[in-house]
Amino acid sequence: MLKSKENIIEMNNVGIRYDQGPEILSNIKLSLPKGSFHFLTGQSGAGKTSLLSLMYLAQKPSRGTISIFGQNIDFAQRSQLASFRRRIGVVFQDFRLLEHLSAYDNVALPLRVCDMDEREIKKRVTEFLTWVELDHHMYDKASTLSGGEKQRVAIARAVINRPDILLADEPTGNVDNIIAGKLMKLFVELNKLGTTVVIATHSEKIIRDFRYPRLHLQNRGLHVYYPADTSFLGDINV
């Protein structure tokens, strides 16, 4: 286990570029302490999803180093990356559910890849789907669900494993304010239990209400704002 002072995610001199294009993010330096909670903001196209994808190990930076759970991922074994990913829950901006599977099977996935016993899986999945108020759609195909319902399935899938890190890309973009508030409470709850949380959002209301530090992407760089700063809400561009 990591000591509480340690950084669970660290980036140094990180740059991202796609194909042979220019860098969309340059010289990113970032350290997230274990158990912290951050919002990730920035205009559309600023690179929020790209930065998160480095954290959930879906791509490698074009330069710089990334350490996760204290391990430089350039030197991690392939099987080690898989076990890291099991400790990271991800809510994708576009959900990325397996459309041909039921809500139940989608949420069960992170448990199944760990070979958990099906009875235990059923208990947990039912509990989580009930919590996101989707128990009545448990066995419906994901492709038949509405946007907001898909989003809640995606969130249940991300948290079912009680991950050490939760990375959520606009997790409240498709739900009404009441459900959004409820989902945010879930993330806060998880954070209190020790999960490190990063949430990309465009919602000024959420940032204002919850007052966690902001990682703000602008001009290819990263700026950190704290709730006490006068500029905390200054340049939110939503």
Partner: peptide
């Protein structure tokens, strides 16, 4: 998606 969720090869 399976990989990101932590499925091994």
């Amino acid at each position: 998606i399976l990989h990101i969720i932590g499925a091994k090869d």
